[in-house]
Simulated scan of single mutants.
Amino acid sequence: MTSGGPMGNTGRAVGAGVAGALLVSLALAAPVRADSGGTAAAPDTAVSCAPALRVLKSLAGPGDRNPWLHTDQVNGIGPLGLSVGVSHDKPAYWLGTAVHAVPLPAGATGGSVEAVNHLGLMVGTLTGPGGRKAFGHRPGAKAVTLLPGGQYATAVNDRGHVVGHRHDPSTGTSAGLEWSGGAVRRELPVPTGFRLDEVTGINNAGQITGHGSGPTGNDEDRYDMNPGLLRSADTAAAPTPLRPVGGNYEYYRPRAIDESGRVVGHHWYTRAMRETPRLWTAPYAEPSYVPLPAGSTSGTFEDISPRTRVSVGAATTCDPPEDTVVRAQYWIGGGPMRVLPGLTPTGYSAAYAVGDDDRVGGVALDAAGVAHPVVWTCAGRQAYEPVATARREARPAKAP
């Protein structure tokens, strides 16, 4: 295992030689703390802020980039001006708008940073001829830390606990993992008769989200229930399938969990190729339906802020079906869904991360049709309710 510093409890600083320079850099790069557009728990709302859509710098690579491939986007919002994600299919992080490459170990050719905690510990997946490997990294460190037994590291909390999974193509099954201090803390069980598809989130209380599939009992060879899964911090407790459990052509996909235990994600109905955002709250009996922006036909939630209840994702309009429009969407936890402005009035955008300071990270197409990682600062002040009749917009590149 290569290491750029201990992966232990992140109550520690990021490292003696790196911490001071990093914090200075972050402070210089940080946007003014934001108003979260009416969210009750929003921080620093009395401080003025400058709403902006910031285009982040990119690593060297080709200029014709397709947003459907997820090779250039922000996936996580860290402290101050730090954000993390992927640039030209390589793991990257940004201080303000300046890009920094995550050092690739021997055998790795690409990858993505998927998440970051409030002390700058980032986690993600490396790719290469040798397969996928889960990793952790701290800004300024000279090497990554490989997480044993894992292929995907998808989330990290402020205690330094990392969650992810590995996939066995020979059996078509996945195993969930939780790491602490660079070592496996536990394998994550699934309910009896179910299989795991993905682990997606963890909060500071140790609650873990994911999703899987299970049989109805009518046919042992079919997986006809497709629910979200919620685990507690109790290592002896079995995970709970979130209701409803889905069915043929229906999938429930939790994507993130906040510090109060609110879970956001979406429902995917494959027959109609339609997604709708969902919110689960304790006691998790049924999810709440969240309205789509006016004129949209589909939408997702990809992240929720830790404490301010702001959720973000992407809203899609298909009218007619060949005119597909995707816009970043923003919800304060109540009221109507809103959308965020793109780099062009009608261009593609999508949001994948949101912080308590009301920074939102994602991707947007420029006028030339090139995808760029972006951050919206003071996003709540930029979000607006779209007009239902404004449905014919610029077409992003189609996925292959």
Score class of each variant (00 low, 15 high):
residue 9 N to A: 05
residue 19 A to F: 12
residue 37 G to W: 09
residue 41 A to D: 13
residue 46 A to M: 11
residue 50 A to S: 09
residue 50 A to T: 11
residue 51 P to Y: 08
residue 84 V to E: 08
residue 85 G to Q: 08
residue 85 G to N: 08
residue 94 W to K: 10
residue 97 T to P: 01
residue 101 A to M: 03
residue 101 A to K: 07
residue 103 P to M: 07
residue 104 L to V: 06
residue 115 A to R: 05
residue 121 L to I: 00
residue 123 V to Y: 11
residue 150 G to Q: 09
residue 150 G to I: 05
residue 151 Q to G: 00
residue 152 Y to N: 04
residue 157 N to V: 09
residue 167 H to C: 02
residue 172 G to S: 02
residue 174 S to K: 01
residue 191 P to V: 01
residue 197 D to F: 09
residue 202 I to G: 00
residue 202 I to E: 01
residue 209 T to M: 05
residue 217 G to M: 10
residue 228 G to E: 11
residue 238 A to Q: 15
residue 239 P to D: 04
residue 241 P to Y: 08
residue 248 N to Q: 05
residue 252 Y to H: 12
residue 254 P to M: 07
residue 258 D to K: 00
residue 266 H to S: 02
residue 269 Y to H: 15
residue 282 A to T: 10
residue 283 P to R: 02
residue 295 G to P: 06
residue 296 S to P: 03
residue 309 R to C: 01
residue 310 V to D: 06
residue 310 V to E: 04
residue 310 V to H: 05
residue 320 P to W: 12
residue 326 V to L: 07
residue 328 A to D: 10
residue 328 A to S: 13
residue 333 G to F: 09
residue 337 M to V: 05
residue 343 L to I: 02
residue 351 A to I: 07
residue 353 A to Q: 02
residue 363 V to S: 05
residue 380 G to I: 03
residue 380 G to W: 06
residue 387 V to C: 01
residue 391 R to Q: 11
residue 391 R to W: 12
residue 398 K to D: 12
